[in-house]
């Protein structure tokens, strides 16, 4: 079965969506991500959707729910590289993905993840060795 690979990069998970998302694929991804977060104890998840040029409301909602699920598992989610057309579509669909952090590209996304995790640790959250 087709799957979207999830790469582990340091303490983060990197997901690059390079194919057209259909509903089954999205559900599988959701399962895989939550599994991986628990397995690798990742602190951050980065979803790169720069190759995605079409979204529907289901995929939009899926992005939102992955972010919420990760938060419950204590991992920050950042969505990077959204195309203008995709952003416009999501806004027109009324999905502004509140609660999902966004960045322009992978570089900036990494920066964002690092700084937000640092802040969290500074605030007295559990620090891993």
């Amino acid at each position: 079965m087709e799957r979207i690979p999830i790469l582990k990069m340091g303490g983060f998970l990197l997901i690059t969506i390079q194919v057209d998302m259909h509903d089954r694929l999205a559900m599988t991804l959701q399962n895989d991500v939550t599994d991986m977060i628990v397995k690798t104890r990742a602190r951050g998840v980065m979803i790169d959707i720069s190759m995605l040029d079409m979204v529907d409301s289901f995929i939009g909602r899926m992005l939102g729910s992955i972010a919420s699920m990760s938060r419950i598992l204590d991992a920050e989610t950042v969505v990077v590289g959204m195309q203008p057309a995709v952003a416009i579509t999501l806004v027109e669909l009324g999905l502004s993905l509140t609660g999902v952090r966004t960045a322009l590209n992978v570089d900036k996304g990494m920066e964002l993840l690092r700084s937000s995790i640092e802040r969290k640790e500074a605030n007295g959250a559990f620090v891993r060795d």
């Binding site: 990077v80 995709v86 806004v91 502004s96 993905l97 966004t102």
Partner: peptide, 12 residues
Amino acid sequence: LKTVAAARLMGA
């Protein structure tokens, strides 16, 4: 507001 929301989605 839509423009702002769309820009935010892209990370700006």
